[in-house]
Design a binder for these strands. Structure first.
Lengths: 255, 255
DNA sequence: TCAGATCATATATCGTATAATTTTCTTGAC
DNA sequence: GTCAAGAAAATTATACGATATATGATCTGA
């Protein structure tokens, strides 16, 4: 296994070389950067489940970081179920089934490394399970503030379109508001995860210049149903909305 | 804020006192124990969102552990969204909405600290959203091995009943198999989280001596539908099963 | 051949020193 | 008097070396 690639761009930070410390630390937090680097190597399949990492001292040396930083990075991955370590046996990559796939970070890493067809299918299937039901609940439980926030988000979406960051943020905000209106903490937790995923699939769509279709009519229809408290229609509207998003994402990926 | 309580039972581990090292470290891993201790203090509300922890050196001293251990414990909580730390500003407890509530550990800590009525309501609502749909998918996609495994789990459940650990394990296994049969990785990830929660609610039920009702007929009905590939009936069977579990849990909690 | 003791190794923990960052305070100018 | 730029202080972030502990592997003896 080639670990040199994982160590690429990482240089030793020493007290003696203050000028050298201005290295490309995009994250600012070194252990975060190391964790992401290791995580992407894992989710990409470069380090498959069962793979055993080198001993900490050697591994830290290869990555060009201190052992403390490497250990804190591994704590993060351990907390997300991706690796586990035992004395003498070393640290190894866990089976995929043990990963916390719904963790926003894991989800993001997965998508960054190129989402497979299977993953996108699973993602949209999950959305199709959760969000229509959420729309039903939202129609029954939403309050006035949430309605006005939804209206504002839709207005921003329309003004900026999904080609801009602001427009995409408004899209995410709208979906978050729907899940918030369910008044169910666990559903809201799913919201964070799903939103992460939506963000990147939407980014995929907007990469193709000609926006596939205008999603505003479906969004407005959903909003109307929730505002009117029409649960059954809200469910249908959400299904239509997700169907549209799915179809467009598939088209975008085909190119 | 009283931090002495968090430090309770934690004693300094020194090389000079080998006998002292036999302290109540159930987890074996010190940073795990510290993380759990801090996490339970957080989920119980003792350390509310917005609370700022003492500086690392002082905090580590109060807990009777080294700074590295405390930092690794905080890395775990950070990875689960429960705290965040910035230089100079200190480490603080995040808002509940930022926690990864679906993380199996977070879920377990939450339940250990006494699940509120709202939490149980949310949990059963989530089950009612996810599992009926999962039952539908399972009926369409299950293979022979999963069917035989389900049958075995049911057989074990019947033999041991839910009053025993083995019986409860079989119950969880059955529900896991249903979600596995959906052939959707994200649904399976939900499975782990939900199973954790089910385990403890089932434990609540079995604490009351007289088992409320025999859940076997519903389980067998669900199995039959999945085996026959009858998606619509599988959905209904799962709904009936969760309804039963919910009712029994509520009854058990009333006592 | 197998069981038990021993050994080697890797993780776990500790303590201290230094760097980096950001809040806060101070100082000066307008 | 107010605001902004800069200095200072406090705290997290990183690093490194030493020791403890646990466990897989090996060796030994019955």
């Amino acid at each position: 296994m080639d670990f040199a690639s994982i160590g690429l761009g990482m240089r030793k930070m020493t007290a003696r070389l203050p000028a050298e410390t201005a290295l490309p630390l995009v994250s600012g937090r070194l252990h975060h950067a190391v964790a992401r680097r290791l995580a992407t190597a894992i989710v990409s399949g470069e380090l498959p489940p069962g793979h055993v990492f080198p001993a900490e001292v050697e591994h830290a040396d290869r990555l060009g970081v201190s052992r403390s930083v490497l250990r804190e990075a591994f704590r993060i991955l351990t907390a997300k179920g991706m690796v586990s370590s035992r004395p003498k046996a070393g640290t190894r990559v866990n089976e995929r089934k043990n990963w916390n796939l719904l963790d926003p970070d894991v989800l993001a890493w997965q998508i960054q490394c190129g989402a497979s067809d299977e993953f996108l299918r699973d993602l949209f299937e999950l959305r199709m399970v959760v969000e229509p039901q959420a729309a039903e609940m939202a129609a029954q439980r939403r309050d006035e503030r949430q309605l006005t926030d939804m209206a504002n988000a839709l207005e921003t979406m329309e003004r900026c379109t999904l080609t801009s960051d602001k427009g995409r943020a408004a899209d995410i905000r709208f979906h978050e508001l729907v899940l918030e209106a369910t008044r169910n903490e666990l559903m809201q937790a799913l919201s964070t995860s799903i939103s992460t995923a939506i963000a990147s699939t939407t980014a995929i769509k907007s990469r193709v210049q000609d926006c596939p279709r205008d999603p505003m009519p479906e969004h407005r229809a959903l909003y109307r149903c929730i505002a009117e408290g029409n649960a059954k229609q809200a469910r249908k509207a959400m299904i239509a909305l997700i169907d549209l998003a799915h179809a467009d994402t598939r088209v975008a990926l085909r190119r």
